[in-house]
Design a protein around this nucleic acid. Structure first.
Length: 451
RNA sequence: GUGACUAUAGCUCAGUUGGUUAGAGCAUCGGUUUGUGGUACCGAGGGUCGUGGGUUCGAGUCCCAUUAGUCACCCCA
């Protein structure tokens, strides 16, 4: 029935194959994170409302799922007369589902700072929720995989994170990946150098839009904000430079001279110099701004050049994040991997290993009580040897059991009937070729171990 | 939050300018085969056409409302 749809829009079930594929990605990430010296962390799905709000910008706040207070929350708000839903939600909700992993991480670090040795390196793979309208590659419940270093402003951290991106996409075999990099200091420097009537955030958002809306949009924006034509031209040119990384930096150095721009450029130079051996394409993109408010230095975004499904990951450096929770524990930098988008690409290019689809190695059919007893003995022996094995629970038609085994994608089906009971052998059928042979249990183990 | 499009069997979809009992493929179940799956052949079950209203002698088909889904925008992984 078309009407019966039990699950919430934008929130999904995962069947066995999907879970295995997702785990494949997660396992590879976890291995890498550990290899680079990061430790795992998990935080609750919900945070206090005050922890989350005001951290992601106005647009971000709107997308936070809020949870109602329990009990009769209306009884205490008699004296409230507001028509403003934002104000009202403050009274009836005191907690919310996490929107990302970085803010809960910052909260955790401040709360536990006495037990943490800095710089603190953690990775976190958990679900986050956004009350966005779902569309392709975008869900209301999705998994983020974050790695962050907090308590150090060294650019070596940036280099390590870039190296993780590079290693990961190399390991899982995704080609044509580009890591775009920029620095908020450069954007701030440019912004300062302009005589323009707007705030920095709107400026960033308009830059970010050039890609989609075109440069005309950006010209209009600058014009509206009373930016001079000379400056407009200079800056628009900056965002469409088709130059090498070093030429781009040269251009910006000679056209926008101030301290902020300079220090941003210096940072980029350091990072580019130290990541030369990375296998990923690193390209400076001055139009990369990112909407999240808290970034202050380096910003990253990973995209696929083959498919436009949004970014595969992103991140950046943030200076004041722990300050928002009452303690300044130093600068931090982190990146995130978008599990569902990486999944989509791997699926599309058939890059998941074939072994993901296999299940039981040896599937025993059930042909009677005596037969089941001896089959179960063999099943136990195989399991001890680390060979996955199972016995069909019911003695039903063989055809049915074979069909079940086939659908489960078993490698072999083992049959023990009257004949095999007498000879003590196992009738082993290869489910790919259909070949059958009579083996003792020892021969069977040897055969499978040798594959 | 804004806009566009879609809704028929478990799934993917046909269904003519409105006209008998709404079809196919896949899937499921049974049989050809009581010890052989995946390939073959035969058969069966399964639908209040998303929901509610309207126009009409007559609506899956036209109109209105509603709900859900998809895609795009905003923003983002």
């Amino acid at each position: 029935m078309g009407t019966i749809n039990y699950s919430l829009s934008g929130m999904r079930d995962f069947n066995f194959l999907e879970v295995r594929k997702r785990n494949y990605i997660i396992n590879n990430l976890t291995k890498l994170f550990e290899l680079y010296g990061f430790s795992p962390l998990e935080t609750p799905s919900m945070e206090k409302r005050s922890v989350l709000f005001g951290k992601y910008g106005d647009e971000g706040d709107k997308l936070i799922y809020q949870v109602l207070k329990s009990g009769n929350f209306l009884s205490k708000i008699n004296d409230i007369n507001t028509q403003d839903y934002k104000e009202l939600s403050n009274f009836i909700s005191d907690k919310a589902l996490r929107y990302d992993l970085t803010i809960p991480f910052a909260r955790y670090v401040v709360q536990n700072s006495q037990d943490i040795t800095f710089p603190f390196k953690r990775y976190q793979i958990q679900k986050v929720w956004r009350a966005d309208r779902p569309q392709k590659g975008r869900y209301r419940e999705f998994t983020q995989c974050d790695v962050d270093v907090i308590g150090s402003s060294s650019l070596w951290s940036e280099c390590d994170l870039i190296s993780i991106y590079s290693d990961f996409f190399n390991i899982i075999g995704l080609k044509n990946i580009s890591l775009n990099i920029n620095n908020r200091k450069i954007l701030e420097g440019i912004f300062d150098s302009l005589d323009i009537k707007t705030d920095f955030t709107s400026f960033c958002i308009s830059i970010d839009k050039i890609d989609k809306a075109g440069k005309e949009y950006f010209y209009d924006f600058l014009d509206q904000k009373k930016c001079s034509k000379v400056q407009s031209k200079l800056i628009a040119k900056l965002f469409e430079l088709k130059l090498s990384n070093s030429d781009k930096l040269q251009y910006i150095k000679s056209n926008f001279i101030n301290e902020k721009v300079n220090s941003g450029v210096e940072e980029l130079l350091f990072i580019l110099d130290k990541t030369k051996s990375c296998k990923i394409d690193i390209s400076i993109d001055f139009s990369l701004a990112r909407g999240i408010d808290y970034y202050t230095g380096s910003i990253f975004e990973v995209i696929s050049k083959d498919k436009s499904i949004g970014s595969l990951g992103g991140g950046g450096r943030y200076d004041g994040l722990t300050k928002m929770f009452g303690k300044d524990l130093g600068s931090g930098v982190g990146i995130s991997f978008g599990l569902e988008r990486i999944y989509m690409l791997l699926d599309e290019f058939n890059l998941f290993p074939k072994s993901i689809n296999k299940s039981t190695d040896v599937f025993f059919v059930n042909l009677g009580e005596k037969e089941a007893c001896i089959s179960q003995k063999f099943v136990n022996i195989l399991r001890e040897k680390g060979i996955s094995s199972e016995l069909f629970p019911d003695c039903v038609k063989l055809k049915k059991q074979m069909s079940y085994s086939n659908k489960k994608n078993s490698k072999y089906t083992a049959m023990i009937g009257e004949d095999e009971l007498n000879t003590g052998k196992i009738n082993l059928r290869n489910m790919t070729t259909g070949d059958q042979e009579l083996l003792t249990i020892d021969e069977l183990i040897k055969k499978i171990k040798n594959e």
